[in-house]
Structures are given as structure tokens and as C-alpha cells.
Design a protein around this nucleic acid. Sequence first.
DNA 1: CGAGCCATGTAAACAGTTACATGATTCT
DNA 2: AGAATCATGTAACTGTTTACATGGCTCG
Lengths: 213, 213
Amino acid sequence: MHLRLALMSLLVAQPMTGFDIKRQFDDSVGYFWHAPHTQIYPELRKLEAEGLIEGEEVARGARGRKTRYHITESGREQLRAWLNTVEEPRRDRDPFKLRAANFELAAPESAYAQLRAHERHYSREATLYEGVRENLLARRVPLLQARLQITPPEEHEAIIAFRAYAYSGLIRRARGEVEWAREGLQLLERLNPGLTESQEASAAAVGADEHVG
Amino acid sequence: MHLRLALMSLLVAQPMTGFDIKRQFDDSVGYFWHAPHTQIYPELRKLEAEGLIEGEEVARGARGRKTRYHITESGREQLRAWLNTVEEPRRDRDPFKLRAANFELAAPESAYAQLRAHERHYSREATLYEGVRENLLARRVPLLQARLQITPPEEHEAIIAFRAYAYSGLIRRARGEVEWAREGLQLLERLNPGLTESQEASAAAVGADEHVG
DNA sequence: CGAGCCATGTAAACAGTTACATGATTCT
DNA sequence: AGAATCATGTAACTGTTTACATGGCTCG
């Protein structure tokens, strides 16, 4: 259901090909949900079979062909219906915290490296999300612009606000992970005095290498 | 790999049957990872086939039989190896934020109900995790006690600290979701003045009904 | 004309969910 | 004797990942 929701929520803004959607998934929208093209194309065909979207063959150069899908009235209704149903929340799984819970079995240097990677990863994510959020609020996002163009102005504020709100959630999450990772690094240092310094030294060495290479 | 890690991290504390593991998954450990019994039993057989764990048939009453698994030396090594490898983080998916990003298509009353449910869910989770964390720190958790008993005392602190640390992460996450949901309720009220009051009134009515029934 | 992007596909494998099924044990 | 819990299983289905494959278009 989630994949369908993601696909339809894109097509509600403007008609797209499977490839366009793939790019969106690699991009901003993909921060909420994403899928490889091997999952996208079959799902689009299913949605079409159910009459929720419709594809039209479009020429591309001389012999090239592509299928552009647009949402149908029935699809729009279905999307609204999905968004109105209350899904009972499923229990989360957290592979990294599962690991962290057992870090006494890992080498301190490895735990250090893993927490560092976690910190870096979510730190980057947070920055990324913040950028997208800024762009949304400034109406600089093409997909948002397309959506606004086909929508009466009095609804614009809500559309932007909900998008930005969802990104706030991602940002909050990412920032939390960064803080948690830093807590973990402190814990490691407490349990292994001197570890942090030596690791930072070797990390700096690696950084220097990278800079040279 | 995650399921295996979860299974082995349980068996490192003490021998267990598939059923015992199922119960742990319904319980504290399940907050990091969980699986239904239909996934547990086959995976245990695979782990045994690979020599990472060993099962012994145990009598249960007169005719009853059950298989208790314990970790092997090779399994312990493998577990350590897994915990020492740095996994590159996979992109998260967040079905609820995907929804929230499109809430302009939902009825405000439904969006309200969904955010409320989200708030309640994570609020409960946070309380739950905090309880477990307290119990860990006070060494009141049987599985932890078992683990400590087979481990030299100088390692006890680290074991407890990492478990508690992982729970801190879950707690932080849950608290963040609660705050985010509350932000969302405020946003809804801003976009639909009066909504919150009327919804709270009907929620109170439902609550009263429940109390009566 | 070749590299890189556009565009789409099949198939196998792996992971997770849901439905259905069976039988023994323990407690009331 | 019946209910609740212990204990384990098969099978079908859905979702996700990974590997492999193909061909056209665009630009330098």
C-alpha cells in the first residue's frame, strides 16, 4: 500500500513516466519512500489495470517510446480514501540499535567507527532535509510548483505547510540520531579511556590520505 | 542478517527454544527487532545447519518434546564478526510521514485522528522503553541476569551500559515522534480554526462511551 | 562514434506477513 | 472437561533487493 501511496501522491501533482518517478525517488520525495525501477514499473501497470491511473504512449525522438501516466478521477478518490483511513502503527525495527545493544561484543574501535558513520550519515540527511524544506517554503521545488498550478490558491498554504511539516519530522529524527550517536561516542570513551583520541588521530590520518589522493 | 543477529544475540545470553525467543520478541528485546514464529523456527534450523547454534531435544511432561538451542563457539565468533562489520546505512522509509506530507488531501478530522493516534502510540512506546531501561539499570531483567552470570564481572558495566544506551535511542526517537505529532496538531488547528476543540469534544465523548461500555 | 543518460524489462532470491493447522501440557 | 498456554509446523502471498539485459537518444 505504501508504494502505491507514494506513486499516486506523485502523479497527483503531474503526469509522469516510470523513469520520472524513479528520479523523484532518488530525490526529495524519496526521503519518505523510495523503490527501485524494478518495483515501480510493474506497480504502475497494476495501478493502470485497476483504473487508478492511465498511461499514454509518448514519442521520444524518432523510434523512442515512453509511457506517461496520469491519475484518473477514480485514482484521486482512492488516494483520498487511503489518506483518510487510520492505519494502526506497526512496530518499528531498528537494525542499528539492535547492534548497539550488543556492542560489548564488538571491538571498541569498530563500535567507534560505526557510531561515527551513523553520526555522519544522519548529519548529512538532516542537512539535506533542511535544504529541501527551505526550497519547499520558498516554492522552489518544480513538483510543488506543478501541484500548485493545478490547485486553487486558497489551498496553497496547506499543501506547502504539510510538505514542510513532514520534512520537519525527518529533520527531527535525523538530528536525534546524531545526538544519540554522540552520546554513544562519549559512552565508548568512558568505557575505554583514550579510545576517542587515538581513533580521531587515525581518522585524521585517513582524512589526510584522502585529501592527498 | 538482522533476524540472525537478533536470534544469536538472545542465544548468547542463554539457551532457548524457538518459543522462548518468540516471547522475547513480544517483549523487551522485540523493541529492536521482532519476528513471528513462522520466521523464527526455520531460521533456527538454518543456523543449526550452519553450525552456529546447536539444538537438543528436551522432554516436556510425558509425551511433549521441544528443542532448546544454544550458541556454539563458531556461532559466538560469527556474532562478533557481524558486530564488527560496518554496515552502510540504508535509506529509511517512513510511511506515516509520507501520509502526513499529503494531508491536504485528507479530511482535517481524519488527519487529526491520525496524528492523535501517532502521538498516543509513541507516547506509550516511550513509557514502555523507559520502564525497560530502568529495569536494565537495576538488573531486574532475567535475560540480562543470565547473561551477567556467565560473564566476568569486569564486563558487566559495559553490557548494561550498551543495552541501556540502545534503549535511550528508542526513547529519544519515540519522544521526538510525540513532539512532532503535537506540532502537527497545532498546524491543523492553525489551518482549520476550531477543529481541535470540536475533535477533543468528540474524543472525550468516545472516551466516556468506552468508560461506560 | 562512444560515453552517458533515458527508459523499461525479466528473473531469482530474500524478507516479512497472514492464514491455517496440529497436538501436548497445565490449570481451573 | 475445557480453556489457556506451550510448541511447532506448512503454504500462500506481498514486498524488497539484486543481478542481468536491452535498446534508443543526446552531446561532444
